[in-house]
Design a protein around this nucleic acid. Structure first.
Length: 471
DNA sequence: TTTTGAGTTGTTCGA
DNA sequence: GTCGAACAACTCAAA
């Protein structure tokens, strides 16, 4: 008699190169299950819900409409499924975040009690975080040695496993429709957001192929310029597992040698994603607590007005506002902008990194507990391998350097479109005649800067300085 | 155990 | 305009 196995889809919403699914398919007839669990897991951000909705639609379509979707506490759902359908075995890919790992432990107890076998795979990370350790067998806190050690493992990352031969169990009548999940009600989803993304496994692959052929050849240089199309934009696909990091890694190497500096740079960046997940695995407090505890007494100010202006892209610094508006409009922000706007919030406005973290969490389509937490800790300087405190990004200089023609600024700040490049980074310095000619009245069409850069920088440096005095 | 070298992404100042 | 040093000290990781 054919064995009945469950594949529990989590952050691996794909069929190809899905190790747990692949092995489940070899083991017997498969019941593909997705559980939307708002009980045991933290609530998703608005744009994550939107993306998840479309990702599930796409996955269900690939499975000829036979994805079984449930909503509720994962344990209860499993107890119910086990009772009704009597599976022999359950397969899943591990999700390496504290809440998900806790969920695994609970589920393992249930499976053991019911005498059901299980197989767990790594389908979301390049390297098992347990295995990359330093000489003391403790986790790395610095990226470079972590990366070197990981790369020294000869057989990793593992090769993709390819497409499984799926035979779905078809005598199961439970499950709800994607539309029954309350995923789209949170927020009006704009046309611009829709226009920015094509969601699902097939599109993830297309995105990768386009990137490798067209954008990777100038990646190392072009990745710093937000107006150029040289970043991969794979982050949301990776987050939801529509594509695996292993597949990305090996595809890049199929086309390039590791010695190609563009390929190497990109694989390093992919490994920064890995490092964030690694840190979260070994330091589960990463999302909430400063990795450097001396930052616990940092004198954050609490200025609701500043925060609101930052969120809406109305700080009066064009490069900052362009980044914040890109986020609102497209659910994404170029990596360089994430650093610039983060530095501005934390160092010029002295707002707690938690506030930036939460805004990003709701608006990013690639919102990820590991990447988001590690990124903000890095920007704030409280991570273990973080930017030195005296590194305060100057939004005017960053604009001039990385958006020299103001192309990116003009894309997201239409009211400044006619301002000549000479003044596009500092509209408050433009003579009235120039502003008039550009159709801009400062304070009306576009704000004056909300803080003085020099002053706020000095303030930040003093605040950081105080951290050391009695420590 | 001690020592040594290094650590994603910057800015400012003064020669 | 260009360039190098200073910005601080600390922790990490390996020899």
């Amino acid at each position: 008699m054919t064995r009945r196995v469950i594949h529990w889809f989590r952050q691996d919403l794909r069929l190809s190169d899905n190790p747990a699914l692949f092995n489940a398919c070899k083991a017997g007839k498969v019941l593909p299950v997705f559980i939307y669990d708002a009980v045991s897991l933290p609530e998703l951000g608005h744009r994550s819900k939107w993306w998840l909705y479309h990702s599930l639609q796409s996955l269900n379509h690939s499975l000829d409409g036979r994805l079984k979707i449930f909503e509720g506490d994962t344990q209860d759902i499993f107890l119910d499924i086990i009772k009704k359908y009597n599976p022999n075995q359950v397969f899943w890919n591990k999700v390496y975040s504290p809440d998900n790992l806790a969920l695994d432990s609970k589920l393992l107890r249930i499976l053991k009690a019911s005498n059901i076998q299980h197989e767990i795979y790594n389908g979301t990370l390049l390297w098992d975080p347990e295995k990359i350790l330093n000489q003391d067998h403790s986790p790395y806190k610095v990226f470079t040695p972590f990366y070197k050690k990981a790369c020294s493992y000869p057989d990793s990352p593992e090769l993709p496993v390819g497409m499984p031969d799926i035979h779905v169990i078809d005598d199961v009548f439970d499950g709800i429709d994607v539309d029954d999940l309350d995923l789209l009600s949170q927020e009006q989803i704009s046309d611009r957001l829709h226009a920015s993304w094509l969601i699902g496994e097939a599109h993830a692959r297309r995105q990768l192929n386009n990137f490798v052929s067209n954008s990777l050849p100038n990646y190392k240089h072009g990745r710093d310029f937000p107006s150029l199309p040289n970043v991969s934009r794979l982050s949301p696909y990776l987050h939801f597992g529509e594509i695996s990091p292993n597949y990305v890694w090996h595809e890049v190497l199929n086309v390039n040698r590791f010695t190609d500096f563009n390929a190497e740079k990109f694989l390093t960046e992919l490994s920064w994603r890995e490092f964030a997940h690694y840190l979260l695995y070994h330091f589960p407090d990463l999302p909430s607590k400063n990795l450097q505890h001396k930052f616990d007494k940092f004198p954050w100010s609490n200025n609701y007005k500043y925060l609101e202006l930052w969120k809406q892209g109305m700080t009066g610094y064009p490069i900052i506002d362009a980044g914040m508006r890109e986020l609102i409009q497209t659910g994404y922000m170029h990596n360089r902008l994430r650093m610039i706007v983060g530095s501005f919030l934390v160092k010029n406005l002295l707002q707690h990194w938690h506030l930036g973290r939460d805004w990003f969490w709701n608006l990013l389509v690639d919102a990820d507990i590991a990447n988001n937490s590690a990124g903000w800790q890095w920007v704030a300087g409280c991570g273990s391998d973080a930017a030195p405190y005296f590194r305060v990004f100057n939004p005017v200089l960053q604009g001039k350097k990385f958006d020299p023609n103001g192309e990116y600024i003009r894309r997201y700040i239409p009211e400044l479109r006619e301002v000549p490049s000479e003044y596009i980074f500092t509209p408050w310095e433009a003579p009235n005649s120039v502003l008039g000619h550009s159709g801009v009245v400062l304070g009306k069409d576009y704000p004056f800067p909300i803080v003085d850069l020099k002053e706020s920088r000095v303030q930040a440096l003093e605040a950081f300085d105080n951290l050391k005095i009695d420590k």
